[in-house]
C-alpha cells in the first residue's frame, strides 16, 4: 500500500439506497477540479457494482473500492 490518497471531497451516502449514492457522487464530482478525488461512503450493497458501471460510462477513474462489513468506500478521481 502506498500513501493513503487524500480526497478533495468526502460524501456520506450511508443509509440511502439506489439511486442516492450514485446521484450524490455524480453531483459532488462536479465540485472538485479535474484530477481531484471524491470519497463516497455507502451502505447500499448495489453501490459496489453500480459505481463500476457509472465510472465506465462517465470515464471517471475508480482508485479504490473497498468493502468493510456493510460499508463500501470508493475513491474516484475526476478525469474530465
Amino acid at each position: 500500500m502506498g500513501l493513503r490518497l487524500k480526497p478533495s471531497l468526502s460524501v456520506d451516502a450511508r443509509g440511502y439506497m439506489c439511486p442516492y449514492p450514485i446521484i450524490l457522487l455524480s453531483l459532488s464530482i462536479k465540485n472538485v477540479d479535474e484530477g481531484g478525488v471524491v470519497e463516497v461512503r455507502a451502505t447500499d450493497p448495489a453501490f459496489e457494482r453500480d459505481v463500476i458501471s457509472w465510472a465506465s460510462e462517465t470515464g471517471h477513474e475508480i482508485l479504490e473500492l473497498n468493502r468493510s462489513g456493510e460499508e463500501i468506500v470508493a475513491l474516484i478521481r475526476r478525469v474530465k
Binding site: 439506489c18 439511486p19 450514485i22 446521484i23 457522487l25 455524480s26 453531483l27 458501471s53 457509472w54 460510462e57 462517465t58
Partner: peptide
Amino acid sequence: LIIASTAASMG
C-alpha cells in the same frame, strides 16, 4: 425517476 436521474448522472 430513479432510472431518469441515474441515466442523467451517467451522461
